[in-house]
């Protein structure tokens, strides 16, 4: 499948943030979106998944089959917030997102199925604490639970907004491994980041605050 963005422009509160960005990502490719604060990385990700309307241009998913026709249906969005409830325990939080999002097992050939909640927690190294309320966890642990959400239901496209914020070195490396596994299973990763992703083959889209320039990636 392909994620294609054409001539994309975005705005926040009427102010243009970026314009004329275009790229096409094939299955297995990753794209790191970099740039200084305020250059529109987060806005770009929100436009990509359809949470914000694009002021110009379009985003589409090609070859996603019946299950993944639009970017919104095909993507996991990991924003600044973890989308977890502090009053619920870790397992309840992940259980809910798994049931609500549906497991949507892979339609792409050789796709890995979604993990169970415990498997996903083991993948982020938190299998010892499924019974703790989410509110008791540290910042890094919360982020790792949010990352585990990407694993409990399958979506081919991951849109990640500073995914490694608050993670320690070991967790960053583990997360790089998860992204690599996702790409090699035919997934697509777009990550806005300040620190290196740890993916050697990732393309880079550099966004500038003053003069954004389009650049084909991958």
């Amino acid at each position: 499948m392909r994620l294609v963005a054409e001539d994309l422009s975005g705005e926040r509160g009427g102010e243009p943030v970026f314009s004329e960005i275009g790229f096409a990502l094939e299955s297995g490719q990753a794209l790191a979106v970099t740039g200084p604060n305020g250059s529109g990385k987060s806005t770009l990700l929100r436009v990509l998944c359809g949470l914000l309307p694009a002021s110009n241009g379009n985003v589409r998913v090609e070859g996603g089959g019946d299950a993944f026709t639009t970017p919104a249906a095909a993507c996991h969005y990991l924003g600044h917030h973890n989308a977890m409830k502090p009053a619920l325990i870790v397992r309840e939080n992940l259980d809910f997102w798994q049931r609500f999002a549906g497991e949507s097992d892979g339609v792409l050939s050789g796709q890995a199925a979604a993990l169970s909640v415990m498997e996903a927690l083991a993948a982020v190294g938190l299998d010892a604490i499924p019974h703790l309320p989410f509110g008791y966890l540290s910042t890094g642990q919360r982020r790792r639970v949010a990352i585990a959400r990407l694993l409990v239901s399958f979506r081919p496209i991951w849109l990640l907004d500073e995914p490694t914020a608050g993670l320690d070195k070991a967790s960053e490396a583990r997360f790089a491994g998860l992204m690599k596994a996702h790409c090699s299973a035919g997934g697509i990763v777009v990550a806005a980041t300040h620190s290196p992703l740890g993916l050697e083959e990732a393309g880079e889209l550099r966004m500038g605050a003053s003069s954004p320039f389009p650049q084909g990636a991958g």
Binding site: L51, A72, A83, K85
Partner: peptide
């Protein structure tokens, strides 16, 4: 506030 609303809106193709 905790970002859940974004995800609920994103799932509007399924629900």
């Amino acid at each position: 506030e905790d970002g859940s609303l974004d995800l609920l809106v994103l799932e509007s193709d399924r629900h």
